[in-house]
Design a binder for these strands. Structure first.
Length: 158
DNA sequence: GCCAACGTTGGC
DNA sequence: GCCAACGTTGGC
């Protein structure tokens, strides 16, 4: 697929881990409250795009597996829910502010690729994750994705 | 529209 | 728990 893109999405492992994702099979990605991350989900993510599932605030942090976009951007329901920690009083059903996508579980890496390992890899020095660590949904260049895939293959990944 | 103050993320 | 880096808010 020529137009296929690659992304990295962060989840706090204590909150929602790759094992939770594997169990659910699919998940919506509610709760993102950063405009740049929202724009990627609302405007740029397409069905079939592949997702690196990243554990942040974890011990260690790193890439835990793979997912795939199966529903493009639509309003994040939690912005309308006054009981939700993600409630946004400025948002209305007519004018939603926050968007999310749905992703499907594909694979849990048999070899967890820690941030330390990513940083050590010379070919990944320019990866956005390394340069700009805080963005919770970010594009991944194809060459970087392929390298990560290769690392997974080298450790018996699918 | 600038920018100081404040809040959040996330590695360590 | 600390704190650097960065994003957001709000006064002017």
């Amino acid at each position: 697929m020529a137009s296929q893109k690659y992304w990295l999405m962060k989840s706090e492992a204590l909150d929602y881990s790759i094992d939770d994702f594997a169990k659910d099979k699919r998940s919506d990605w509610h709760g993102v409250r950063n405009y740049q991350a929202r724009n990627y989900m609302r405007d740029e993510m397409k069905n079939g795009d592949l997702i690196l599932f990243y554990h942040s605030n974890a011990n260690p942090s790193g890439i835990a597996g793979l997912g795939e976009v199966i529903r493009t951007g639509y309003p994040d329901f939690t912005q309308f829910d006054s009981k939700s920690e993600y409630f946004d009083k400025k948002a209305t059903e007519e004018k939603p502010i926050w968007y999310m996508v749905d992703i499907q579980f594909k694979e849990k890496f048999s070899h967890f690729i820690s941030l330390e390992e990513l940083k050590r890899n010379k070919a990944l020095q320019n990866m956005l994750l390394i340069r700009h660590g805080r963005l919770s949904v970010q594009p991944v260049e194809e060459k970087h994705f392929k390298i990560i895939q290769k690392i997974s293959f080298a450790h018996g990944g699918k």
